[in-house]
Design a binder for these strands. Structure first.
Lengths: 165, 165
DNA sequence: AACTATTGCGCAATGC
DNA sequence: TGCATTGCGCAATAGT
């Protein structure tokens, strides 16, 4: 939890000025605020981030286009606030999506197991039936030799020993 | 691409002061930097974010514990830099994981289709075999009646409509 | 032209 | 003490 930062080494500061201000809209929600330091409203204030006098060598006067961002502007704050909301929303969605995807994985895994079990079952059934056929075929081949009281005569369709998986 | 901000309305500012500084470490990588405004190094400078004079009513002088964060400190910058690195790493992992999960979903979907196809096949095979059995059974039934050869004793290949699934 | 949605980034709190 | 995570705000920019 924290929000603003100050000029940092890397990339660009977007602008040559750092503005210090705020407005206490307090629309934001902080799940785990460290303390109760909320009511912090500074007076909008422009501060040249490029104190040509001081650090000395830094910030080439060139390339410092439009300071026209005016952190003060009421409109700016509104835009920021809206964007912050949009950001939160977007991130929530993102997380939700990730969770859903994970959930989907679990569901698919279960489904897979079910299907595999079914396949196993069907395979077994098929195997049994085929064996019966084979047995019968043998009986026929060996001609009329009743191994047990129940036999007859019938065309043996296929004699396929190989089990087509 | 941007980094620092300034005091904002919402939550807390962590501290009552806004520091403006930088150090041009330039370790960061900006995928899509807007321009070449990189070499921005401000002179570390402390600026009281709470100009008691100006806006007037704001920021109770109380609640402003330890400004002891010292954005200046070389060590602070090092810590920040390391953390930034860790953050990037963590986020990369997170994204990678999300993508992997999505990939997993796709794989599982495919697998599912394969399994379903297999089930369909097996079911069909089974169905055929069962039909054969039934047919045979009927033949037997219509057959084993004439102990003596007085009747029409020929296997009647009746087509059995009943089908076990 | 004006908005919202996304995305990369840095900070700080917190988890481990 | 240090890395890892996570929420947050900013700004750029993609999408409408």
């Amino acid at each position: 939890m924290s929000r603003r930062q100050q000029p940092k080494p890397s990339t660009a500061d977007h602008n040559g000025v750092s503005v210090i201000q705020s407005q206490a809209h307090a629309t934001s929600s902080s799940p785990s605020l460290p303390a109760a330091i909320t009511g912090l409203q500074q007076v909008p204030q422009l501060i040249p981030a490029n104190p040509s006098a001081a650090g000395g060598k830094s910030i080439p006067p060139s390339k410092m286009k439009k300071p026209s961002v005016d952190k003060d502007s009421d409109e700016y704050r509104q835009r920021r606030e809206r964007n912050n909301l949009a950001v939160k929303k977007s991130r929530m969605r993102s997380k939700q999506k990730a969770m859903d995807t994970q959930q989907r994985v679990n569901e698919l895994k279960e489904e897979n197991e079910r299907l595999e079990a079914k396949i196993k079952l069907l395979s077994k059934e098929l195997s049994v039936l085929k064996d019966l056929f084979l047995e019968h075929a043998h009986n026929l081949a060996d001609n009329v030799q009743p191994p047990s009281g129940v036999e007859g005569t019938s065309p043996v369709p296929n004699s396929n020993p190989t089990n087509g998986q």
